[in-house]
Simulated assay, not measured.
Amino acid sequence: MIYKDDLNNIVLEHHGVKGQKWGVKKAFHTAKASYAAKKASKAREKSWSKAYTNRAKMSEAQLTAINKRLSLENQLKSNIHQANPPKKSLVSKYAGQFGNQVMGAIIAGGAAATGKIILNAAKKGVAAGL
């Protein structure tokens, strides 16, 4: 954005692309590959849906082959998820710990203890930059 400031100087400002990291350019081929992968995934889902609709017309061998393929795909997805679990953000990590402490204090019946835990957690959050 180009404008004149109070001192009549011409100023050029650019705030970048929303969500893009500094110094990182989005590769065109990566976006194109992602689009192709999504398109292939949709086509595969459509083919599985069509196969399920026509299951009465299939032979036992065809059903077995399709069922084996689907179970292998699901097993692969599960194994990948176990090998690379989603990472928790710092906020969700502290929120979970904070919630457990508060619930423990409430169950123990100590309103005063609950207040102390809330204050301590707030202090920790400020110290951690949250």
Rank of each mutant, 00 (worst) to 15 (best):
M1N: 05
M1A: 05
I2K: 09
I2R: 14
D6Y: 12
N8C: 03
N9Y: 02
I10S: 11
V11T: 12
E13S: 10
G16I: 04
K18A: 15
G19N: 10
G19F: 11
G19R: 03
Q20N: 10
K21L: 15
W22Y: 02
W22P: 03
V24M: 10
A27S: 15
A27M: 15
F28P: 08
F28A: 11
A31H: 00
A31P: 02
K32F: 02
K32Q: 06
K32G: 03
A33G: 06
A36K: 14
A36E: 09
A37D: 14
A37Q: 15
A37N: 14
K39M: 04
K39E: 09
K39C: 04
K39D: 05
A40R: 04
A40L: 05
A43K: 06
E45R: 04
K46R: 15
S47D: 08
W48E: 08
W48F: 12
W48C: 03
S49R: 00
A51L: 01
R55N: 13
R55A: 14
R55T: 13
M58V: 06
M58R: 02
M58H: 07
E60T: 08
E60F: 06
Q62W: 01
Q62F: 09
Q62C: 05
Q62S: 09
A65M: 00
I66D: 09
N67C: 08
N67T: 13
K68P: 01
K68W: 01
K68H: 09
R69V: 09
S71G: 00
E73Y: 04
N74R: 05
N74S: 04
N74A: 08
Q75I: 11
Q75S: 10
Q75P: 07
L76G: 10
K77L: 08
K77D: 04
I80Q: 01
H81S: 07
H81G: 03
Q82T: 11
Q82F: 07
A83L: 15
A83H: 15
N84A: 05
P85E: 04
P86F: 04
K87E: 14
K87T: 12
L90R: 07
V91I: 14
V91S: 05
S92G: 10
K93M: 02
A95N: 06
A95G: 03
A95D: 06
G96K: 12
G96N: 08
G99V: 10
V102K: 09
M103V: 13
M103D: 14
G104P: 07
G104E: 08
I107Y: 03
I107C: 05
G110W: 02
A112Q: 15
T114D: 02
I117M: 05
I117T: 02
I118M: 11
L119A: 15
L119E: 11
N120P: 11
A122M: 14
K123M: 03
K123Y: 10
V126S: 06
V126F: 08
A127Q: 15
A128I: 13
L130C: 11
